[in-house]
Structures are given as C-alpha cells and as structure tokens.
C-alpha cells in the first residue's frame, strides 16, 4: 500500500507462505522465530547483515516482485543447554493474590537488575503498576469484573494488557544475568515453573466463564499461547 502511493519499500518476512501470497514489491524472507525480524538480539553484526541484504533490494530494478531468502539462521534459535533463570523460585503452590504477591517480591529485584542490564523495561503497556496486579487478577479469578483501573480501557482490555505486563516482567527478570537463552526457554520456564504462569492459566479458565463477553474473548484467545494450553483445554 505504501509503494502504490509512491514510496519504495522492502519487507522483512517471517512466514514465507504469507510473502508468496501478498507478493510485496521487495521482500527478504528471514528464517527467524516469530517476533525477531532482525534475527539475533545483541548481535549488531548479525542484524546489520540482515539489514544490508534487505536494504540492498531497494537498489534492484528487476521487480516486481523480488523475493529473496536470508541465508543464515540466528544463533539463539538453538536452546542453551542448562539455561535457568539466575534465581530459584519455590514450587508454585495454590494460585491466589497473596501467593502471586509473594512470588513477585522474589522476582522484582531481578527485574530491577534486568532494567540495569538492558537499559530499559518493556513492562508498561497496561499502565497498571505491578503492585496492583495481584488484586486485579484475583477479582477476575473470583468471577468478578472489576472496574478498569485505566481510563479509556475496558476491564477486559486492562486485564489483557496486564497479562502481557506480568509475562514481560518475569521474562526480563529471568534474563537479568547470564548468557542469552535459546528461543522458547524463557517461555517454557514461565509457563511451567512459576506461580504467575499458573495464575494466568487459571485466569484463562475463569475468564472464559465470565459473564462479560469481552473478558471471555480475551481470556480464551490472548492469555496463554497455544503451546502452553493445558491438555484439558482440548489442544
């Protein structure tokens, strides 16, 4: 659409069949995990190779359509043997606001270290402070639909973005020290070894039974990624 309005474009594509359907003017298929179009975090040389290949297509005049493949995999696509977060959490117990609060007290200092390490945090899409998350989640777990704490967001959307934020906080904390884990290792840890992960799975179940249609929708679709849905969910 941008190109049809007169500006040259090149797209980094992560799903080749999609590129073959949309047929962008210039596309570079990059064989990286979804969510990593430049391939490798903290590897400027790798990212630059991706960019130079893609931007180089802008100088070609043999289109449309130009579709090329980037020839390298990203190193972190391979799991890092023995990776674990730099802290150990107790075995997750019963899901509750209190138990989440207790776990978060252990995790937040590592989240602070992660912010020092990476120079930023990606937590904050919901606009709800972490201290308010446990009580907010607990209300939905109890079948209630509490008022949204964020002006302009429905309770369902505030909940949806708060779920993103809790995942981000834990994921950043887990990477506060040590070498970079392979793709999916942080997610695997979050969904199988933390109370927060269990709570989001319980929140999905509770939300799908909510009297609020929007809560049912976001709970069913936007809390738990498909690979981590409990078997009882039928997947």
């Amino acid at each position: 659409m941008i190109e049809s309005l007169g500006v040259p474009t090149v797209v980094l594509g992560l799903v080749r069949p999609h590129m073959e359907t949309t047929r962008p003017p210039r596309g570079l298929f990059v064989p990286f995990p979804l969510g990593r179009p430049l391939g490798e975090p903290e590897d400027a040389a790798f990212q630059t190779r991706v960019l130079r290949h893609a931007l180089g297509l802008l100088e070609r005049n043999d289109g449309p359509v130009i579709l090329e493949d980037f020839g390298e995999d990203a190193p972190s696509q391979t799991a890092l043997a023995g990776w674990a977060p730099p802290f150990v959490l107790p075995m997750p117990g019963e899901v509750s606001a209190a138990s989440l609060r207790t776990e978060m007290e252990l995790v937040i200092p590592w989240w602070m270290r992660a912010q020092a390490r990476f120079g930023r945090t990606t937590v904050g899409a919901s606009g709800i402070a972490p201290q308010a998350w446990p009580a907010f989640f607990a209300a939905f777990l109890a079948g209630e639909v509490p008022a949204s704490p964020v002006a302009g967001l429905t309770p369902a959307l505030a909940l949806r973005f708060a779920c993103d934020d809790v995942k981000a906080l834990y994921s950043e904390a887990a990477q506060a020290e040590g070498p970079m884990p392979g793709i999916r290792q942080v997610d695997g840890w979050f969904w199988t070894a933390t109370l927060a992960g269990r709570l989001l799975i319980a929140l999905r179940t509770a939300g799908m039974a909510s009297s609020d249609n929007a809560v049912r929708t976001v709970a069913g679709r936007f809390f738990v990624p498909a690979p981590f849905l409990p078997p009882a969910a039928g997947h």
Binding site: L38, G39, P225
Partner: peptide
C-alpha cells in the same frame, strides 16, 4: 498476538525496531 517471542525484544529493541 501472544504467538510470537518477546524475549528478544526485551533484550534488544533492535531485534524489531533497528
């Protein structure tokens, strides 16, 4: 979407926004 990796973005914004 919840179906893509965020860990890379969390470590390095250039993974998405270079």
């Amino acid at each position: 979407s919840i179906n893509y990796d965020r860990a890379g973005w969390q470590r390095d914004i250039n993974t998405i926004y270079p």
